[in-house]
């Protein structure tokens, strides 16, 4: 099963430490460069705040990813339980952004590659679970309230067991109002 990072709105305080950690993890030492164009500030998650919810939204690493299905250039692949985008193959058609039901794929301009009209070339961008980087997803590591977790198949199994037990307990509870 593919893994994914999930935020808990009851624990999230909307501080966006995850947002900064994402950039730091992917840009590495480039963040120290004096040249303002020396690194890209393109977080791969977005903290959403509504009246009742604050939580980062990021890629679910779907088993049959809509983004991959619509990709015309073969830039999206699944590797090591992770949905990954190959920037070099991406043609910037935005189909994946439109297809993703979670709003987890967005377009970002690349540092120095220009289109023929002089504008910066944009590519599809999303969470890669810090693929190839040491220490696993940086967002999860830095969260001050431990609101983020990496969900693996055993976590889902545990969640399912808990839900099933809960349903069972409710159903057998004597207080429950049964339909007449």
């Amino acid at each position: 099963m593919n893994r994914y990072v999930q935020g808990d709105p009851l624990l999230c305080i909307g501080c966006r430490t995850c947002t900064i950690a994402c950039v730091v993890a992917h840009e590495g030492k480039r963040i120290y460069e004096i040249d303002p164009d020396g690194y890209d500030f393109h977080p791969r998650l977005k903290v959403i705040k509504t009246f009742n919810v604050s939580v980062p939204v990021q890629c679910k690493h779907c088993e049959n990813p809509a983004c991959k299905s619509v990709c015309q250039s073969g830039a999206i692949r699944v590797q090591d339980g992770t949905v990954l985008i190959d920037r070099d193959k991406c043609i910037g058609c935005k189909s994946c952004t439109e297809a993703c039901p979670f709003g987890a794929v967005h377009m970002v301009p690349l540092g120095f590659q220009l289109n023929p009209d002089g504008t910066r070339r944009s590519v599809a961008h999303k969470c890669d679970l810090c693929h190839g980087l040491e220490g696993g997803p940086a967002c999860k590591r830095v969260c001050p309230t431990e609101a983020l977790r990496l969900v693996e198949s055993e976590d889902l199994a545990e969640l399912l067991a808990m839900k099933r037990t809960k349903v069972l307990m409710t159903a057998s509870s004597p207080e429950i109002n049964r339909p007449v």
Binding site: I13, C15, T145
Partner: peptide, 26 residues
């Protein structure tokens, strides 16, 4: 945020929370 973490933990440990604020803060 580091103090807010204590508030979140208190909630997890079962504390009740009353918030008095003109805004819908976290």
């Amino acid at each position: 945020p580091i103090v807010a973490r204590r508030i979140v933990r208190a909630k997890r440990k079962g504390a009740q929370i009353i918030c008095v604020d003109p805004r819908r803060i976290e």
